[in-house]
């Protein structure tokens, strides 16, 4: 067995150990009922996340949620959940990042792609590239913010009349917060019902979650930890990836403790994020949309 195969085998073993096994997913029962309410769950990616990774992260969120759904209260199971991606364009940042990584660390392109998640979190060498885009709203793409806000508002208002829960990761939290006010504001008419949009932040570099939303940041998240040193108002860490964050942040693909895939692969963070989503769904489900 060569080194690559050995690494993949070890990683697969660890993933299998930490991840519940899924069967083939059946259609949600509520989705077979045209009269059942629809609730939209959006994933918003962070910086240095390509479209492919964003799709996989959204898929991971959907799989974990659907695995947990049968254990949720009946009033939550009675809704049909639809999953969407609100993409935060990051190809420019990835290009800068990979170039800097190669120049500063002397790593070939393939290895750069293998370790992209890790490099994102690696101390001052890379954090300096991300600090601005990760924390300053004037450095995020305003066209994307408006596009996201329009998407949420379209879900919340006629003819769709759906509740919305947004799950942003990393810099995506800035996008979700920036889009929130435009999505729920009074104009253009009709205004969405108050409280029908909730945010559940993951690995947030921000100082708040709009709409009294929830968030989870790991104590082992090196990138958010570094940002917190520079900007102490950053929301404090409140979860972890297992009893020993060092061991889990040593997992090759998820090292650095920042990846969305890692947050949804290890407990306590996975359980707590899903619980936050469940609580948020209970809140939005209590709102009469399009009364």
């Amino acid at each position: 067995m060569n080194r690559v195969s050995l690494k993949l085998s070890l990683l697969a073993a660890l993933v299998l150990w930490t991840t519940p096994s899924w069967g083939q997913f059946s259609p949600q029962a509520a989705c077979q009922n045209g009269a059942a309410p629809r609730t939209s769950i959006y994933y918003v990616n962070g910086v240095t996340t390509t479209l492919d990774e964003a799709r996989l992260n959204g898929g991971k969120l959907e799989m974990e949620f659907l695995t947990r759904l049968p254990a949720m209260p009946a009033n939550i199971q009675s809704s049909c959940y639809l999953f969407f991606l609100n993409y935060n364009p990051t190809s420019g940042a990835v290009k800068d990042f990979t170039e800097a990584g190669q120049q500063r660390l002397g790593i070939n392109p393939s290895d750069m792609w293998r370790k992209l998640e890790t490099f994102v979190s690696l101390g001052p060498t890379m954090v300096s590239l991300l600090q601005g885009p990760m924390t300053q709203t004037n450095q995020i793409d305003q066209a994307a913010v408006q596009r996201h806000a329009n998407a949420y508002r379209a879900q919340l208002t006629p003819p769709l009349c759906r509740r919305v829960v947004v799950v942003p990761h990393s810099q995506g939290n800035l996008y979700a917060n920036a889009a929130y006010d435009a999505a729920v504001g009074p104009s253009p008419a009709p205004a969405p019902a108050a409280g029908a949009l909730k945010i559940v932040g993951v690995a947030t570099p921000d100082t708040l979650v709009k709409g009294n939303g929830r968030y989870r940041t790991s104590t082992g998240d090196l990138l958010i930890g570094a940002i917190d040193v520079l900007l102490p108002a950053t929301l404090d860490a409140n979860t972890n990836w297992g009893p020993n964050p060092i061991l889990t942040s040593f997992t090759p693909l998820y090292s650095g403790g920042h990846s969305f895939m890692g947050y949804l692969s290890f407990d306590d963070s996975r359980n707590q994020i899903l619980s936050d989503i469940q609580s948020s769904l209970s809140e939005v489900n209590a709102v009469a949309v399009c009364p």
Partner: peptide, 13 residues
């Protein structure tokens, strides 16, 4: 379903 991410990362690399 349990290891799509590392499988994808290696292929893309």
């Amino acid at each position: 379903p349990t290891d799509f991410h590392p499988v994808f990362v290696e292929l893309r690399a």
